[in-house]
Amino acid sequence: MNGKSFFVDLTKCTACRGCQVACKQWKKLPAEETVNTGTHQNPPDLSYNTIRLVRFKEEVVDKKIRWNFFPEQCRHCVDPPCVGYSEVEGSMIHDPDTGAVVYTELTKQENYEDILSSCPYNIPRVDPETGVISKCDMCIDRLRIGLRPACVTSCPTGTMNFGDREEMMDLAEKALATVQKKFPEAELVDPYETRVIYLTAYPAQEYYEYLMADAAQTPRKGLTRKQLFAKLGGAAARMRS
């Protein structure tokens, strides 16, 4: 068994934000007071109370508009750098059955800046009052009673898929082959490094700068798995110094 994974087909996402709300509903996380920033993306960023966020990005390419949607969450890295950075016993749990990376209340004893800088996807957020660090936990409580994560259950379009890792890898590769016929630039984002595998229609940077690990400096094509691992390590090393 290689644990669980998500497969997220961004070519099917309509940004209805059902997943974002379903996540809050299950975890009973409060709403945030925001202002209109000129986009449907709301709240504007992840926070301690918003651990799942649908990002909206408009790109004009060849005088045609591309409206790219990106439901963002923790990627549950196969080798999670944040767990490596943890200095407090029991603050971060790498669940052996599912591969989920789960933060506990003990994260309040961690150095938040270090934990954040260790994340190639800019995910963890801290509660300014308690110091507890928060992010997606793969709905590990639901998994244990045989339910899928709240976001996956609620997805009406088939964007969000969840299951055994081999099954999701298989689904991802089949979907990629289909999508590439229409979108030649389509790609799977960091499939070997993370447990949340995104399928994009266009280059990952056109969605969000942190969709792909260190996307700003990573050439996207022709990288072997080994090189990608090295890139991930390199990103962490750069942030450290």
Binding site: N2, G3, K27, D95, P96, G99, T104, I140, D141, R144
Partner: peptide, 20 residues
């Protein structure tokens, strides 16, 4: 982690169990 696939982790209890 790579060698043992995460078997080195002793803690398995989720932080908050809402499924109960």
């Amino acid at each position: 982690m790579t060698a043992f696939g995460g078997l080195g982790c002793q803690h398995t209890a989720p932080a908050v169990d809402r499924a109960t």
